[in-house]
Simulated assay, not measured.
Amino acid sequence: MRDPYTVLGVPRSASEKDIKSAYRKLAKKYHPDQNPDDPSAHGKFAEATNAYDLLNDADKRGQFDRGEIDAEGNPKFAGFNPGGFSGASRGGRPGAGAGAGGFSAEDILKEFMSGFGGQPRGGMGGRGPA
């Protein structure tokens, strides 16, 4: 979804009253019952409703404004730069760029996988103490 403020046509500083007023205008304009011959009206109505639902909830609006959630209300990963994996190059291999904290996906996988197949756990190959 697009930025909910853009969808409703209000500034980020808009009051609850301004947000509600903007939503009501769009809801009336794009309601499917008012536009039976316009197939795009349903999508515009749904987009306006989703934007209003996010901005009308004070907690969700605060989280969105702080960048904690996206326009759909899904949490964003703190410190994760999705562009860091595709744009950068390390060691001459594309896609091996470092993300947040200087770690690449390859580094993380190597660290995780180093515990498998390396040294046997439990000492004597599964035999109990003598």
Results as ranks from 00 to 15, higher is better:
71 A>D: 11
3 D>K: 04
63 Q>I: 06
113 M>N: 14
32 P>S: 07
71 A>C: 07
107 D>Y: 05
26 L>T: 00
16 E>V: 07
120 P>E: 12
118 G>C: 02
7 V>E: 03
89 S>H: 09
15 S>Y: 00
4 P>R: 00
60 K>G: 03
19 I>F: 04
54 L>R: 00
10 V>A: 00
28 K>G: 15
115 G>S: 15
17 K>N: 09
123 G>A: 15
6 T>P: 01
58 A>E: 12
64 F>L: 09
47 E>V: 03
120 P>H: 13
72 E>F: 13
27 A>R: 01
110 K>R: 15
17 K>H: 11
68 E>Q: 12
89 S>E: 15
108 I>E: 09
74 N>L: 13
55 L>Q: 04
74 N>C: 01
49 T>H: 09
54 L>H: 02
104 S>Y: 10
73 G>Q: 09
86 S>G: 14
99 G>L: 08
71 A>S: 15
64 F>H: 08
107 D>R: 04
1 M>N: 04
53 D>H: 13
43 G>M: 12
50 N>S: 14
124 M>V: 11
34 Q>M: 11
68 E>L: 14
109 L>N: 11
130 A>L: 08
8 L>W: 01
32 P>C: 01
48 A>T: 04
3 D>Y: 03
44 K>C: 04
63 Q>E: 14
115 G>D: 13
45 F>E: 09
79 G>L: 09
117 G>D: 13
74 N>F: 09
64 F>I: 08
94 P>H: 10
84 G>K: 03
91 G>I: 07
18 D>W: 00
98 A>K: 14
71 A>K: 05
111 E>C: 04
85 F>I: 12
33 D>P: 02
84 G>H: 05
80 F>A: 09
100 A>F: 13
54 L>S: 04
128 G>E: 06
1 M>F: 03
47 E>A: 15
19 I>S: 00
13 S>V: 06
112 F>H: 10
128 G>R: 11
118 G>M: 04
